[in-house]
Amino acid sequence: MESFIHIIILSMLVTTAAAIVRVKDLFAVTMLAGIYGLLSASFFVLMDAHDVAFTEAAVGAGISTLLILTTLSMTGRFEKAAENPKSNYKPALALTLVTVTGALLIYGTQDMPAFGAADAPVQTHVVPRYLNDSATEIDIPNVVASVLASYRGYDTFGEVVVIFTAGIGVLALIMSTVSTAPVALRASMEEHVILRIVSKMLIPLILIFGLYVQFHGEYGPGGGFQAGVIFASAFFLYAMLFGLTAARKVVNSNWVQALAALGVLLYGSVGVLAMINGGNFLDYNFLAQDDVHGQHMGILFVELGVGITVASVMIIIFFTFSTHQQRDGEPD
């Protein structure tokens, strides 16, 4: 029965992807991409990958739609390449490339072990160690969190640095084209009485939910990445309703930029602290008297660092994009 549901969802995914290719209106593409995100999250849930599904729920279906839309408002809504004869629009080339790559990938799957096969490398390499020993070595219910934050602490550190770099990249690229003169923003939605009141009720709940996800990553799906996004989305909602000027009063841009760096610093410091105590970088066993306690503390602070950086970078990106968009959108 379950595989029947899998097939339905997968075929809807393919249909959506085909629709995305066909549609020329970039706004419709964004909407379909949002649906694609929703579908993949459902599929991840069915495949029992609930941490991935959680991330997809927060990032793929929610925030990325918003960010793509703000980008669209800077670039325009329709694909122009096809109409312009002078452009380098060569669909045949891209199509050939994609077809060849796809064919190679399908050919490659011939050598892959069957899904869920017991002798597949993924079941015999490091995973048994994670699954069997996580309970005694780290002692938290969610193995995904222990893999992410402890066994693979290096990788996650890299990811946080990537996110931090992305934030800096956006600032460097867009800030340079925007003058720092204050922009008068019409908070057009503020007089929208229903939206105003309902959002006022929701914002504190979104914030506390974000923090709940942050601190319960060890017990269920969630953790710093998802929590950061959820927490930041409350600020997005606030900025969209009450205007950027008001939002900037609530969160000082300089603080947010400092916090983005602080998150990475916190993560790194945990690693360095382990070194000072005589262990390897990010070896949490050296953080406390006994190993399990050290692991708990290490994971808690590392996840906090991730959450702070992700939330700050998201806020930086959204605010910078919106400032830019506002100046462009200002009637001449």
Partner: peptide, 20 residues
Amino acid sequence: EFLDIVMVYALMNFITVIGI
């Protein structure tokens, strides 16, 4: 326990529509 994911959707859906 997947209900946390559901909760995120219920909240995100609203924010996305307002954003659009």
